[in-house]
Amino acid sequence: MAPLSDTTDATTDASADDAPAALPGDGLREGIVDALRAELGDQLLDTHLVPQTDLWVRVTAEVWQQTGAVLKSQGFDYFCFLSAIDWMPSPYGDGEDDPSAADEDDEPAEMTSGYTGGDTRFQVFARLTDLRRHVGVTIKVDVPESMTLDTWLPTFAGANWHERETHEMFGITFEGHPDMRNLYLPGEFEGYPLRKDFPLLARMIKPWPGIVDVEPMPADDTDDDAEGGDGS
């Protein structure tokens, strides 16, 4: 990966067509965290920084709407996406197992959250980008028991469809959203497909034919053998 600079000043005027002099470094990302903490105080629960790569923050559900507004005022005015995660391990395995032989070791794996932690099964996450400073941030929030969150619609008009999709796929309601109809699925569809406990019926009937793909090759004793390592 190309070396990154820690210089924070990467503002370019709109007509410049060459690459910016400096791409964002960790110093800039720490600055973003500090600025956000100044606004939110201890409602900013956790942050995670992968060096030279990306930034995650987690806030409480109370300030979810406010976080969007604060970040927008700090320059993150480009709305990238909003969606949710179901952290529950899938009760149906990862799809590689034969469903008929599934009930042998049904020790359910423990629920773990990813970067910046989390306490609930569902998390909503969104991403905003600062087009001037060339930096993005992923914001996560725990979804409370009531499965409702405030909408981001007043801040980002683009959140409309994303929140509808999240509602449809996870059953999370966004308070203040005017129109929580289904976006994708026909009206009579039951269940929330992206929840981990939503079964794929076709897989219940027929095992995944691609299982053979991931079986270890018997004659392959040189481990970590790269395929085509000397191509060209």
């Binding site: 990306d54 990238c80 990813g114 053998d225």
Partner: peptide, 30 residues
């Protein structure tokens, strides 16, 4: 040079989260 880095035959991706987007023909796809 080579066109393939050294990767294990059975690919297990370590735990973590990553966001990568590129400028696709239609726009930002990530």
């Amino acid at each position: 040079g080579p066109i393939m880095a050294k990767v294990p035959r059975i690919i297990k991706v370590p735990e973590g989260e990553a966001w990568v987007s590129t400028e696709n023909p239609l726009g930002e796809m990530g």
